[in-house]
Design a protein around this nucleic acid. Structure first.
Ligand SMILES: [Mn+2]
Ligand SMILES: [Mn+2]
Ligand SMILES: [Zn+2]
Ligand SMILES: [Zn+2]
Lengths: 152, 152
DNA sequence: CCTTGAATGCAATATAGTTGCATATCGTAG
DNA sequence: CTACGATATGCAACTATATTGCATTCAAGG
């Protein structure tokens, strides 16, 4: 029985299909990201993994890089200095904008419908190759706004 | 006589109006960005300035940070590791998406009309504070595409 | 099991940006 | 015009994030 509310995919198959070895570290990275509501930085992921068992942070960087290059993860620039990573868009997880809180560094997924946009003209007329379109909203998240009020 | 095709603004006045001291370095940073067709990284700007006279790179970082905080410049995340800076949007220079070439690192301004989008619903319903909306297209620029073909 | 190429760990290195503090410059009051 | 206080700049050290080289371990196929 496979739940369709909790979207745990078969990550081993996902890796195999991409021609990648199935290793504990790769599965654990994917599980962390799958379990997260929002994209995480390499540091976030490394800290999370390190709580259950030791992984080298370089390994985390290499896994992320590799999974991004195979289209399994997507890498988002965050408005801060660290990239954030999330499961790549696919049929039941369409591309969407993200919100980045410049105070706490938290990144959130927004609904795909929150910022509707038509890319067909751009894609038809742009003279280079388009690989990705990234939309990021920067600001202060709800939680931080509340904290800021309390502080004053 | 003031040209209206070549958009050299009175940067000294711009600084004064913002309550900032008018220094040679600040004027030179603004001139470099005004003369550039596309947003530049702090490193680009520093190299350009250093060709005519010596400036410390820390000074460039501090100028950029300050001008961004006063709304004179805007800071764009680039898909790579370095931020890029350009003159902030205003009435005759509306916000627009940017293209980032992942091969040569060049960033280009796109026409504001190239990716039309309606932000009103998002702005009305988002529970946090929205400071900026950034749209970036990543890919390979025309020039790099040509070079890549020649190489193969 | 064995073999082999890929994955991982670890140390060193790279890149971009930041901080502390001393000195130089700007803006203004006299 | 000059002097003074505030701020900008230079320089060195430092931080945060990511990458590279190389030795060791592990996964996948026979
Ligand atoms: Mn997302
Ligand atoms: Mn632009
Ligand atoms: Zn926040
Ligand atoms: Zn290019």
């Amino acid at each position: 029985m496979k739940s369709n509310t909790s979207p745990h995919r078969d990550f081993a198959a996902l890796l195999t299909d991409a021609g990648l070895a199935v290793t504990t570290n790769r599965l654990r990275v994917l599980e962390v990201l799958d379990g997260s509501l929002s994209p995480l930085s390499a540091g976030d992921i490394h800290r999370t993994l390190a709580r259950s068992s030791s992984v080298n942070r370089v390994t985390v960087y290499r896994i992320l890089e590799r999974l991004v290059r195979h289209g399994i993860l997507e890498r988002l620039s965050s408005g801060g200095r660290a990239f954030h990573y999330g499961l790549a868009a696919d049929t039941d997880h369409p591309p969407h904008p993200h919100f980045y809180c410049t105070r706490c560094g938290q990144m959130d997924c927004l609904s795909p419908a929150s910022l509707p946009m038509d890319t067909t003209w751009l894609r038809r007329t742009f003279p280079g190759r388009i690989d990705k379109i990234e939309i990021r909203i920067d600001g202060i998240c709800k939680n931080c706004l509340r904290k800021m009020k309390l502080e004053t």
